[in-house]
């Protein structure tokens, strides 16, 4: 089970050799940190995993999530939650509507679920608020909860803490990793901050420019 990458290589448009080659097996509840200098293809790997690799890139290998082959699935069918460093709350929706966006269509009493979720992230009563009026830490928590409400089977984190100041960063790390452990979600985190990897406590994969190996 977990998130398994088998012989994944990604080649940039026009390049002869792959920019990265990765095999990994992330167990439920475990975190794989991927580190490396910018431009090495960390975010490209996440783009491939989410099914949004730009046209022109060539990829081989396969990705399995909880035993399903997700390599060729549509992005919305993969059940991978992703968090970016800019929390990317939808600016035209209220905080509550942002959370409800992630909630599956079949869920009744949506408002209650959303309110309860806000309580969990210490934002009780924030449902009608404009996301632009939240602090950075509050936004990060809403983004995390929005993702969790969509019931992902794995988490992808793209430098998720780099925009937060030091104190908030620790808080958010704790929150994200404890949530992932509690739900037994495999996590792949891309970062250039060694402390992120340390806090995650899992394996660390260093990508080097040109070629990467496990």
């Amino acid at each position: 089970m977990g998130l398994k990458l088998t012989d994944v290589t990604i080649t940039a448009p026009g390049a002869d050799a792959p920019m990265l080659a990765v095999s990994a097996d992330v167990a439920p509840g475990a975190v794989l940190s991927i580190m490396g200098p910018s431009g090495v293809g960390k975010s490209t790997l996440l783009a491939w995993l989410t099914g949004t690799l730009p046209v022109g890139f060539q990829a081989t290998g396969r990705a399995e999530l909880a035993g399903r082959d997700i390599t060729n699935l549509a992005p919305e069918a993969r059940r991978l939650g992703i968090l970016f460093q800019d929390h990317l709350l939808f600016p035209h929706l209220s905080v509550g509507a942002n959370l409800a966006f992630g909630l599956a269509a079949g869920v009744s009493n949506r408002r209650d679920v959303v309110d309860q979720a806000l309580v969990e992230i210490d934002l009780a009563g924030y449902a009608d608020r404009d996301p632009a009026t939240l602090s950075g830490g509050q936004r990060a928590r809403v983004a995390l909860m929005r993702m969790l409400l969509s019931e992902p089977e794995a988490l992808l984190l793209d430098e998720p803490f780099s925009r937060l100041d030091a104190a908030l960063r620790d808080q958010m790390r704790d929150l994200v990793f404890s949530r992932a452990r509690a739900k037994q979600l495999p996590v792949i985190m891309v970062t250039h901050d060694a402390q992120d990897a340390e806090a995650a406590g899992g394996e660390v994969l260093h990508l080097r420019s040109g070629q990467a190996a496990r």
Binding site: T52, P75, R79, L80, G81, F84, F90, A104
Partner: peptide, 12 residues
């Protein structure tokens, strides 16, 4: 990236 987020939340 908004599209990536929305898709990861299950939006077609």
């Amino acid at each position: 990236r908004q599209a990536t987020v929305a898709a990861s939340l299950g939006a077609s």
